[in-house]
Write a protein that binds this DNA or RNA. Structure first.
Lengths: 206, 206
DNA sequence: TTGGATTTCAAACGGGAGTTTGAAATTCGT
DNA sequence: ACGAATTTCAAACTCCCGTTTGAAATCCAA
């Protein structure tokens, strides 16, 4: 691989990641990406074989970074109590509400997919979902040690979805009629509420 | 209003409702609607002043039917225990997983909006949301009698979102790697799980 | 039954989307 | 420094979208 073409690839990926996180796959046009990346329009087809190919690449990057990130925190979580581990998980899921860092962008891309999974995402998910989902399942299993696989799956999805609503509707929540403030202390309170609800729900005996 | 034109309007509305429920606003083209309704393409602009106007009309119909439906069941719910009322609410929310009746279609349209609210929906919501949201708020208040308005709002949104995930991702849940069965007994079990989690979460003392 | 208003219709319009094209520019091993 | 391979570029292409048009058909009150 030659040097300058790598730079183009990198600029496209970076611009695409930001735009996909902000407006989702359908809401992002190839023209918007190349404008932000300051790159010729044909570059996307040349380097990624089309918009879908580019999205697949962005999704893979995000997927791996997220898995790594959660895995790292899962290590810490093993030592902590199950309540603390779940609280930390929820707080991480809500991070995109206040932060605009790379992790938040990745999570936001996944939140778009949670709403309406693209074909690209479903394929990638079916190939690489196992390690990712098993993290949530492990977390849930500490509350439901005797549950069967189906119940655990449902619970894990349920848990991940808890926060997804708030992240996806961030802008609407801040607007009337709700007017939820979304500064750090408010999000911290929200995280506490959600984890309390989730813990309370899971801890319930069968 | 003359008779035959009413028939056209009705056919468009019916076809549109089904398609919007199935694929959402963006995913439904005017051409698809007129094909299903067996009506000329210009009819939509003539009768509804455009796709948006048609959607607004469908949304209003759905909104009112849903509010009425929930209101009716809320009456029954008042007599029952709060747990039973919430269980019934959850079961109703999950109904689109198995049924394909009008109520399910309306709920599905709203689930599309829960993912990514359109401008039309937000406007309608801000005008007519009060009676609808207050139903969920009332339900939640029975578990959190001392909570302030913000907490109740957050809790109501949270409650509605519980089921939304499953409804929206129906097709993915049935596919690998999860393979959740979505027949009636399975959905009944799912409803029980979700209400137990939700109740457990809400009942938790502050 | 007639004549003006309403409604239907086929066709075309204009715009935005992703992709293709083929030539020009650049890169890089030799 | 040369020359083949790679990469960039502006422009055009094709497709689908919602909407408009103006004439034809239909309706319905008088």
């Amino acid at each position: 691989m030659t040097r300058p073409s790598e730079i183009t690839r990198e600029r496209v990926m970076k611009a695409a990641e930001r735009l996909f996180a902000e407006r989702g796959y359908e809401g992002t046009s190839v023209r918007a990406i190349v404008a932000k990346a300051r790159v010729n329009q044909a570059a996307i087809n040349y380097h990624f074989a089309g918009k879908e190919g580019l999205y697949r690449e962005v999704l893979r990057t995000a997927f791996r970074a997220l898995t790594a990130h959660h895995l790292a925190h899962a290590e810490e979580g093993k030592a902590a109590s199950r309540e603390a581990a779940l609280g930390a998980f929820v707080r991480r899921q809500l991070r995109p509400l206040t932060a605009r860092d790379e992790f938040s962008r990745h999570l936001r891309i996944f939140n778009w997919e949670a709403a309406q999974p693209t074909a690209v995402f479903r394929k990638l998910m079916s190939e690489e979902a196992a390690p990712f989902m098993s993290l949530a399942v492990d977390l849930v299993r500490r509350f439901l040690p005797e549950a069967d696989q189906r119940t655990l799956s449902a619970a894990a999805i349920w848990l991940v979805g808890q926060c997804s609503i708030f992240v996806r509707n961030r802008e609407q929540l801040a607007a009337p009629p709700l007017n939820l403030a979304l500064d750090e202390p408010a999000v911290e309170r929200l995280a506490e509420l959600v984890s309390r609800w989730a813990i309370g729900g899971l801890i319930q005996p069968a």
